[in-house]
Nucleic acid binder design. Structure first.
Lengths: 233, 233
DNA sequence: GAGTGGTCTAGACCACTTT
DNA sequence: AAGTGGTCTAGACCACTCC
């Protein structure tokens, strides 16, 4: 046997989700129906669906059925935005400035982004926590993958919801590298901090359901009133 | 039904691992034997064991059996030490200084640590990457939970392996909060950086298989040659 | 009431490891 | 050769959701 049947089922379902046959929010066929269609037993279809639920791609509820995960502002925040206030409550810094422009891709961007795009959109945003500017965020995406993105301003608070709704690009993962950096003159002015203030820099590569790097993002956060929280297990 | 049978099996196995009936490295009974002993089918025992494998508490191999996960320096590093060099390779900063002392617990430590200990051990360590001091690390553990820890210096590079071997405390999880801070005079001197250099501060609560907070740790890392890498998914 | 996923069982065969 | 986990099937009953 080349690969287990449930693997084949998983790949089939992922493919259908990725190509929009079953868009986010869609109700999948039942275990029995899916198994019958693909020529496997209900138990094997079940195993595949449970694996997909573990990966966060679908959600299952007894009596209701299996639904393709719909990225909402809340779920996107919960999964991909790990900043918390010092008391542990979810921080939801509001957008206070935004600029989108199209430009030629830099070398590193071409190398990192899917499709090695010649042109990219750069989205520059500033966020404030409780009225105080606290995050400077630069996102870079392929202009080929996101046609017309610059014409859609103002963009919603959470970009990943927009990627899904407007471009059928389903973000499932982000790889991040964190460092501490000193505020340069530009950032210090934007955030209203002193020059040289320690800031948390987060370099992110955003990966969609097909495994493509669809976004490169750099966030610089003031951590005087927030921390970046994660669980290792 | 109060709780599913496989849940009961999971709890039974976790309990036996936690109490040392099956210590790390031990070979568990086969699915069939375990099911027979606990009065469930082989399939139900299997489901429990697979869940435990997903949690990282056991490892299964075809033909070999199911083994309680043994924390090795490598696995501990991989799971709980996320620093990488800028090129992405695993950084393994070597220990260059260590001090262990016993003292009264501070208020926050009593509140956070399991058992609200009156006395704690504080382990202060300095690590160097490629010969250059880069991490200052302070671990605090209950003196009741880790009797005689101060007499065991020098401690091994990875504390979690020692917790497991000497105290049967099995670390399975760590909750972390990250911030950027400025180097104070003390740390700056220790790490050979300028005063005010941005450093990555990691506050960690270490949790064992029984869900107890067994360690409170604060690491301060120079991120000029390392980054802290994680995946969100 | 019909349909869904959630739990549980029993049995079959295969691939792998160890002796 | 014996024993293990890995895959797959078929069928049963329960709990939940929706009409």
């Amino acid at each position: 046997m080349a690969s287990p049947l449930y693997q084949v089922v998983i790949e089939t379902v992922v493919d259908r989700i990725a190509t929009g046959v079953w868009p986010p929010g869609a109700l999948l066929p039942s275990e029995t129906q899916l198994g019958a269609e693909l020529g496997v037993s209900q138990g094997t279809a079940r195993k595949a669906l449970m694996a997909l639920e573990a990966r966060g791609l679908v959600q299952r509820r007894q009596g209701r059925g299996t639904v393709v995960t719909l990225r909402t502002p809340d779920s996107a925040l919960f999964h991909f935005f790990r900043l918390r206030r010092l008391d542990g409550s979810q921080a939801r810094p509001e957008l206070i400035r935004e600029a989108v422009r199209c430009r030629r891709a830099r070398r590193v961007e071409r190398d990192a982004l899917y499709g090695a795009p010649a042109k990219v959109f750069e989205i520059d945003r500033v966020r404030a926590l409780d009225g105080r500017p606290s995050v400077v965020e630069t996102s870079v995406v392929s202009a080929e993958l996101f046609p017309g993105l610059d014409a859609q301003a103002p963009l919603p608070n959470t970009l990943y919801v927009h990627y899904q709704q407007a471009y059928r690009i389903i973000v499932v993962r982000a790889d991040e590298a964190l460092r501490a950096v000193a505020a340069d003159a530009n950032v210090a002015a934007t955030l209203g901090r002193d020059l040289g203030t320690p800031l948390l820099a987060v370099d992110r590569r955003t990966i969609d359901v097909q495994g493509r790097i669809v976004e490169w993002r750099r966030s610089v956060c003031a951590t005087d009133a927030m921390t970046y929280q994660i669980a290792l297990e």
